[in-house]
Write a protein that binds this DNA or RNA. Sequence first.
RNA 1: GGAGGAAUGGCAGAGCGGUUGAAUGCACUGGUCUUGAAAACCAGCAUACUCGAAAGGGUAUCGGGGGUUCGAAUCCCUCUUCCUCCGCCA
Length: 423
Amino acid sequence: MLAIPHIKENTTEVIERLTKRGIPAADLINQVMSADEKRRSIQQESDNAAAEMNSISKEIGKLFSSGQTEAANEAKAKTAVLKEKAKQLNEQLQTAEKEMRELLLTIPNVPHSSVPKGVSEEDNKIEKEVGEKPVLPEGTLPHWELAKKYNIFDLELGVKVTGAGFPVFRGKGAKLQRALINFFLEEGIKAGYEEITSPIMINEASGRGTGSLPDKEGQMYYVPADDLYLIPTAEVPITNLYRDVILKEADFPIKMCGYTPCFRREAGSYGAHVRGLNRLHQFDKVEIVQITHPEKSYETHQEMVAYVETLLQKLELPYRILNLCGGDLTFASALTFDLEVWSAAQKRWLEVSSVSNFETFQSNRMKLRYSDANKKKHLAHTLNGSAIALPRIVASLLENNQTPAGIKIPEALQGYTGFAVLD
RNA sequence: GGAGGAAUGGCAGAGCGGUUGAAUGCACUGGUCUUGAAAACCAGCAUACUCGAAAGGGUAUCGGGGGUUCGAAUCCCUCUUCCUCCGCCA
């Protein structure tokens, strides 16, 4: 959620940048501004009415305590009209506030100046491409075939137990999952992130905090009996750890990482690209989250992207980095870099990480602030990134490293798998 | 799931339906003192919105929401959470 004072002070710039997303920004901003103006004037009236009521009540109190009962009762009689007026104004105020908030909630974050213009993924800017795409000999298999060959994971069994998109990993496949999780967590800890094990169900307030609600309710699994959602990413519970918190400047940066399963309904997804592990309802992911001083967040963003790169390098996977264009940016993000690995048998890039700076968009919703040296309160910046989502890493590892003797495990991972070749 | 009890500022903890945004202690910040520190003493110390150039006003907030009342931290309803006991159970 954008902050009203920020919109007021930077109206032209906000509109200009929002336009990059291909939305009618000027209209939306003007609506918000006039809703805010309306709210303010009603608030003034309402506050004045309340102030008047308060002062009369105090008078009455004094009269009663000094024994002037008659005068007190006279004063009481006068309050009825005022009270009604105050009540109505208060109702109007609540309506005006609600209208403004709801309007504000529909406006996505303002893209950073470096975000490319564009409407679809074709307009994303390739920042760099690293590593050699392996040239595989004839007869190489996509990962879903390799899965069968080596009995690593089984989607049909998942269908039996749950439904499509809920894979069952087994044997060395299961061990590989665990190895990757541990590898990512240990690397994260080495990079200074505090490990968090969080709930994997969240309440509505948390969903609103990170911007998953209202927006992605259709993408989240919901448990009506308890009014809870299954998390789509660890970003939600981990970032919400700091909801309603006021930090000190010395607390920055806050760095956290956590492994969780992630649940996504992926309503509307279908087709060839969802085969195998390409798109799932349940998958494992290690997430990194940072909360920073506003002046440091873009530096931090670069640092986080560079960190995810080191993971891909250690896994010896060719990758590229995309700067997502305005139209492809998620609702809450101001800048997102996607990292994609090359999947050699499918011959396509697979997104495995998304590193975003939300600036104050989430912290405004979460009331996540810090106080400066003068005790002034400001919104902090939040960032997060996948480090990394497992399924497509597995897909790419399997495909790129297949040999007649089995799947070669990258050296960095062997200490975690306990085997050098998956066969 | 059943029966009771509780929820007050960073923490602990008072609080009578009336000048209580809220005593007191601790913590924290600044100052005096000190070579320095501690101690002592003095002062300050919630958040949001809003008016104002500022100084400073106004409004709201004592778990959340609603109600009674001229007036609610205090009374009533409701929800949530926590504690104790019972039941169930990985």
